[in-house]
Amino acid sequence: MDALYRDYILEHYKNPRNFGELEPHDLDFHDHNPLCGDELGVHIVVEDGKVADLRFHGQGCAISQAAASITSEELIGMPVAEVERLGADWVIDQLGIDISPTRRKCALLSLKVMRGATTGDASWPD
């Protein structure tokens, strides 16, 4: 089996979960990776301080799309305050593969837009 493009990575890439738009939504954010031009946006519905539902949209490589898809399943139901505390390691753990420095921003783009939507801080996660 391929060390990077594992079955579940490709499966999430080809059939991403929670992709599309959500109208109406409470929070949204849109950003891009300036290195490659990949774009990702998110719509979030908040209920009782939790992420009740979300949809990612945009285009990107297998790593960025799989990261958005895989983490979306964890993010739904998570208290917004908890989302704000998530860091880069959380995403890398969720992906379950080694990410080289050149692909790190691919992996982190979805968390970047999540944090942009919830905290207004659009810096790259540490």
Partner: peptide, 10 residues
């Protein structure tokens, strides 16, 4: 089609 350019380069 079906493979992003970054993945091709990788």
């Amino acid at each position: 089609d079906g493979i992003h350019a970054h993945d091709i380069a990788e």
